[in-house]
Design a protein around this nucleic acid. Structure first.
Lengths: 254, 254
DNA sequence: CGTCTAATTGAGATGAATCAACAATCGTGG
DNA sequence: CCACGATTGTTGATTCATCTCAATTAGACG
């Protein structure tokens, strides 16, 4: 059942251990030329010195945000993976996307009071946090920043639409193959140039992202493994035969 | 088969019959306080008098835009309905959304050179068209406009995510019921306060939007009709029992 | 080690797809 | 205004992909 198990987790919501830090740290961050940071960091340092960046950590299963809660902070992933999801009335879970390092967790929150999805950490995480009010003030005062924000939202929308096509018109094998390749390409864009990488998702997460059941995901992955396409164990995914997997995915993957 | 039938259609792409018009016409347009127009029209008239609005028409099945083509114009629906769709390699079609009066057809195109979806008219249409370059110049020069644009994109992203949940985790009956109710609420937001309204979609469109087959859509609609929930004929959808339909839809519809 | 969570595997059920024939509706030209 | 062809919708029979239920194994971790 996709019902997320309820395990007691320390500090269920973000809150403790805020550490105001200077922007200097950004200068040595590997994300500094990636997406959000590339567009914002330097600009903020220059034009909005009053906007404080703080740091937070999160542990696996920790809730970073709950649907419909007031959005008070803007959160950027520095390390680790989280996912955005929606629970439907009958208890099922649909995962909307995974948030990787460099992703803004709720960019759209800049112009909204709350979001309709929840966010949960999948791995231990390092986060950069901004006060929302301050951030909004900055974005509204800086044309380039507003543009960058729009750009990020558009990118998310495009990913969303690609996912709609997957869910509406592709088989489970296609979806799973595409999903793995997608993840690989996303990591590659972040500088990890391997066909083997950390894969912290449980089969249930894949199932909830792709509209399948965990059991079925297990069968498909088993098949891929038996066919020598991938190897997946102990949190590492190794894509052995990229081109065969891409073929199953139905082409079109970057 | 979801393959869209290839019928020869006059003026396959937008092109002929441009009519430069004054902004005065906007003053008497019923959409002037809705979304795009509410945010942009007056601002444009005041701050960017050089931005020309032209008018166009389109006939059913006419292609308004083809995926990956260079985006030269920004198109706003004034009357009629279009849909955005993607064709997958095996010939299937996934409809991403329907564009109703007041909708910007490709808002995200403002910051992109092209889009990955195509757009086709479903009914006869009246369109407002802006030259893209001029529009971009305006948006980049006007902070409020850029913000409005971001806002529109965020709204579209939210709709997208709702659709993902539908496709991933809801049955065909739920999807169809939700779809009809959604449409009703969207029209109501545009001022049409009835449970009976023009419904120009063929069953194939519903199927392609919801990841089903036309045959199955027919069965479900037949069932809804037999149960006295709706009546659908000659392009008019009458939702007879809103609350029962909402119940099938699984609550949560506005 | 024992306990807990995650993954595998089998058997059987089922929702939706497919195939196919037919009926209804629409648009058009005679 | 009718008749015809094209498009759209209906219905039945059958198949298939994926789900459900359930039991078992494998890993992770204190």
């Amino acid at each position: 059942m996709p019902t997320p198990s309820k395990k007691s987790v320390p500090g269920d919501n973000l809150g403790e251990r805020e550490t105001p830090k200077p922007w200097g740290k950004c200068a040595v961050c590997s994300l500094r030329d990636y997406r959000f940071c590339a567009a914002f960091t330097r600009r903020i340092a220059k034009n909005a010195p009053g906007l404080i960046r703080t740091e937070r950590e999160a542990v696996p299963r920790q809730n970073l945000y709950r649907a419909r809660e007031a959005l008070r902070q803007m959160v950027l992933v520095r390390e680790g993976v989280a996912f955005r999801y929606v629970l439907v009335p009958d208890g099922q879970r649909q995962i909307l996307s995974f948030c990787l390092p460099g992703d803004f967790i709720a960019a759209s929150g800049t112009l909204r009071d709350s979001a309709h999805f929840s966010v949960q950490a999948l791995t231990p995480m390092q986060l950069c946090v901004f006060d929302k009010k301050d951030f909004v003030k900055f974005v509204e005062s800086d044309r380039e920043a507003m543009r960058a924000l729009a750009d990020i939202c558009i990118g998310e929308k495009e990913e969303c639409e690609a996912r709609i096509v997957d869910l509406g018109r592709r088989s489970s094998e296609e979806r799973i193959a595409r999903f793995m390749l997608d993840l690989m390409f996303q990591l590659q864009r972040r500088g990890i140039q391997h066909t083997s990488f950390q894969f912290p998702l449980r089969q249930q997460h894949i199932a909830d992202a792709l509209g399948l059941t965990q059991v079925h995901v297990s069968r498909v992955i088993g098949k891929f493994r038996r066919e020598g396409l991938i190897n997946l164990s102990r949190g590492t995914l190794d894509i052995i035969d990229v081109s065969a997997l891409r073929h199953i995915a139905g082409g079109q993957r970057d």
